[in-house]
Simulated assay, not measured.
Amino acid sequence: MALGRRKQLILQAIIEDYINTAEPVGSRTVSKKYLTNVSPATIRNEMADLEEMGYIEQPHTSAGRVPSDKGYRLYVDELMDKKALNEQEYEYIRREFMEVVGEIDLLIKQASRILSAMTKYASIVTAPQFKRTSLKHLQLIKVDNRNILAVIVTDAGIIKNSIIRIDNDIEDGILERINKILNHKLMGLSIAELMNIDIAKLEADVGPIIEYRQVLNKVLPELLQALRYSERVEVFSDGAANLLDLPEYSDVQKAKDFFNVLNENELLYELLNDVSNNITVTIGKENKIHQLKDCSLITATYSYNGKIIGSIGVLGPTRMKYSRVISIVDCLTQSLSEILTKIVK
């Protein structure tokens, strides 16, 4: 059943007042602050209908009402006024990113910090996911007579280093030749393709020179091991302490449950793993994780050259400032994607 315009305005007023005050909202508050031309008695009747329809609830013995998950969902989807960030806020995001430009991991950590600082909630950001990228360059660098440094670079700018120990010294010319062979054969392959590469065939292509094969026998397993390790995606979080300032988390057990989730990287990755291209708002009991049934999660993806390589999220109470958080998430993901595309060649 669709809500009439007056019920929509009353629901919007209740939600926005509750978001700002964390106090149950009564009919007199709605009449005095929001709908001054409607009597408290009329508003009271409309609120009774909204409660019966499941959009608002009565907490304990309070005379006021609070939004339900269903009410928040309607608010986010249809009633909320969307407000863009101002120029100072845009500039703040750009300036904060420019402080760490060039360092991919630092850039992602900075994104998490910016999110928590601007929203005052907890932020979650996945590092660029290796399996979604391809190999851009492999460089073998001689450290000494027994050690070679393998530097693996992907097209998303992710860099992994691995020390490879060899039995015998390798001449610089041979090492340079191996570099060329490997880059010629492997460059542009996706991580999935590299995982399934036929090592025996690659060794046959290299030829019979024993020094080549000695290094290949060492390099290829190390390369694949480094790539497999990189599939364990890092998740950065920030701002958990922000939640302690909110009345929802004055309950010790509730706060403990929330912090336990933030300490479980696998749970955080699960939250962000299936994020769609668009900004997504998950409210209360819509969350898959039981400990977050009283929380809302706003997520989006960031990309490199149009290719999605990671996700970000903001986690807070269902009494979240949805419009502002959505604007921040939107601006940050666009800025992060633009910077990654510019700095990663």
Rank of each mutant, 00 (worst) to 15 (best):
T318G: 00
G313L: 06
R94E: 07
N179I: 04
E264N: 14
R146Y: 10
E193I: 07
Y34R: 11
I43N: 04
L149C: 02
T341P: 06
E57H: 12
T42D: 13
R146M: 11
I43L: 08
I199M: 10
I289C: 01
L216E: 01
S296Y: 02
G316N: 03
N242M: 07
K82P: 01
I289T: 00
Q8K: 09
K285E: 14
Y18G: 13
E96R: 15
D77H: 05
K7N: 12
K32R: 14
L271V: 08
D198Y: 05
S162E: 15
I166D: 12
A63I: 11
L267A: 09
A127V: 06
S237N: 14
Q12W: 03
M195K: 11
T29M: 11
Y18K: 10
D245M: 13
L244T: 03
E171W: 09
I164L: 12
Y229S: 12
T154D: 01
I199G: 02
A117L: 10
I174H: 11
T21W: 13
I210A: 11
I209P: 00
I312C: 09
S250L: 09
T61G: 11
K136G: 04
M195E: 15
R132N: 05
E96P: 02
K109D: 01
I114E: 01
E231K: 06
M53R: 14
K288N: 07
P59L: 15
V125M: 10
E286C: 00
L107K: 04
S230Y: 12
D205I: 07
L140T: 00
P128M: 01
